[in-house]
Design a protein around this nucleic acid. Sequence first.
RNA 1: CGGGGCGUAGCGCAGCCUGGUAGCGCACACGGUUCGGGACCGUGGUGUCGAAGGUUCAAAUCCUUUCGCCCCGACCA
Length: 559
Amino acid sequence: MRFSKLLIPTLKENPSEAEAISHKLMMRAGFVRQLAAGLYIYLPLGWRVIEKINRIIREEMNTIGGQELTLPLLHPAELWQETGRWHDIGDEMFRLKDRGGRDMCLGMTHEEVMTWLASKEIRSYRELPQIWYQIQTKLRDEARPKSGVLRTREFLMKDSYSFDIDESGLEESYRIHEKAYRKIFSRCGLKFYMVESDPGIMGGGMSHEFMAPSPAGEDEITLCDNCGYGANIEIARAIPLIPKFPSWKLEEVETPEKRTIEEVTSYLNIAPEFFIKSIMVMGEDGPVLALVRGDQTLHEKKLKKIIGNFRPAHRDEVKELLGVESGFIGPMGHNIRKIADSSLKEGVYVSGSNKEGYHTKGITPTRDFKAEYFDIHITKEGEGCPSCSKPLRIEKAIEVGNIFKLGIKYSIHLKANYLDEKGEERPIVMGSYGIGPARIAASAIEQNHDQNGIIWPQSISPFQAHILPLNSKDPKTTDVSERIYSGLESNRIEVLIDDRDERAGVKFKDADLIGIPYQIVIGEKNLKEGMVEVKERRSGEKRRFKVEDMAGMISFFRK
RNA sequence: CGGGGCGUAGCGCAGCCUGGUAGCGCACACGGUUCGGGACCGUGGUGUCGAAGGUUCAAAUCCUUUCGCCCCGACCA
């Protein structure tokens, strides 16, 4: 295609609102524009990238027997009421009424509608398994849209749903999705990990996330380079590092006005890992004291799984329960329920004495107080891998895909049943699987760029080659450029020709920004020798072709 | 929803503290020179200073309200 005929509004400067690299570059290279918070317009180049990604997704989904269809994104409320999510999901769902006053919502995902369809159309075990998918817009009233295209209120998602007769069927559907996902992300040129994740409000059993490592990512994942264990930090387990404990005897020490771990640490000159941090929370069944080591951070989601919903205790509640301000509370001498991090089973510690101005030194948890032990701290870099005990690494990552074993939650609510061989009615066993094409594009940029701009992986680049006729006033330049352009086009190589009457510098800068992997540079110097130059965007490596060597160029781009 | 920041020309910004009727760079239009890494010279157009209300002889500037956008946190199928 011709640059002069395409809308490619490149920007010299970074837009003030962009922070993430992918956001800046997508804006600057003219791939997207922002309409409002979390709402993006895909310009021709951006849309070509998304379509490239979608094509790869379709190919791989079809390979595992997926059938593409498309569902409405305006849904009747009843469906969501039947599964309970109308109530469970809060402000994140866009809700509206139609003219007849009926409650409706905009689909933030499509389990309900897909299950509804299955309930209507699947009768017999003979019709299973099925995999249905769509590439469809999702709408979520995000609390905080951010990082450009990474977290938006309206976005495209490939969502597929598997329908099986039993758990082992689901196991197989899950497994082939994993395989397809690995191929999709590899083909898109991404570096990624598959990690264990929290199924959250999806319900059901196991789930995994596909994570593209990037500093722009919102998630943190723990990884073991030794055995391959990987998990979202929200659920990551780890073996804490155990320090060498001193042999203190139990005694009270005066710590006037020293409340925080930092203050007491420096006052007593004892490292934070020898402290017990006591955090008072108010649960549904009363107060709970959460105990973690001084160098650890309480993981609220882990605690929530154990005690249910809770909130931090107010200052006066702490005082009422323990008779002392929160700076001096500790685990001893009271009957409040205590949840302690497993690492506290060993060692000897300092903690608050529940007495103004005092801490107790020499506390041996299993001896001096009763607690329930769980992993409730946030996994830290260097802690031991739960499966092989080698040190864990933590990386930031972008969630580009996920796979869930839903089980029968949705089938039961929406009566999606089938008749088995014995004529008995059974709920269909389901899985659901998502991929965000825009996040793939953004991750690809996050992982492949330099100071000059984007460096697209060949497979998802908007074009394969970018012809740069450096001096468009030179007839020979334009003649050769046009010949190469039509030669490549007629051989179905996607090529962008910069036919604008611009200076060479401008064309080079824009080409580097846009990031097409190969630039065919047509300049007068090389033409004098009957040559043109093909430059690789990533390495800057150049190779020359004879002007007449169309076949050579074609096979180069076909490789 | 809590904390912070920012709204001035198409884009990036200055001016605001200390009120006096709006400016710089880029972009854009025209002419000329230039032409393998975002050229140069000249000429020219461009603004409800986010919106509403208030204070004042006078408001981009001070006060109040409100809307929008970004960042941190909470939240996140």
